[in-house]
Amino acid sequence: MTAAADPVTQPPDNPSNNNVGVELQDSEESRKVIEAIVADNPAATLSHRPGLVRVSVPGRLVVRRETVEGLLGRPWETHEFQMCIVTYYGHIGEWDEDEIVIAWDHSS
């Protein structure tokens, strides 16, 4: 058996108990989406696992079409987010042509 290399130890999410987040495929296309999320959510923290990138934000996470398009250099519709999302936690509060918002509904 090949010796197992330990995955890199990951930083914990923000020490907040109302984090929301998404996990995206670690792929060329999602890299730009992740960059866009980080740009629009300054409190975001990233962690990596094999094949995956986890983005965690206290309270509210927004994905903006314009930011993604700017980074990709091509039109991008918000439905395309389905192509890179692996999972999320929180509640999808809004998903229209301009943005996707994930937040808890009732806890501050």
């Binding site: 936690y89 509640h91 009732h106």
Partner: peptide, 14 residues
Amino acid sequence: EQQMLEGLFPDLSY
């Protein structure tokens, strides 16, 4: 624990 017990269930307590 973190995502459900600390995230979701406080939300559902509403």
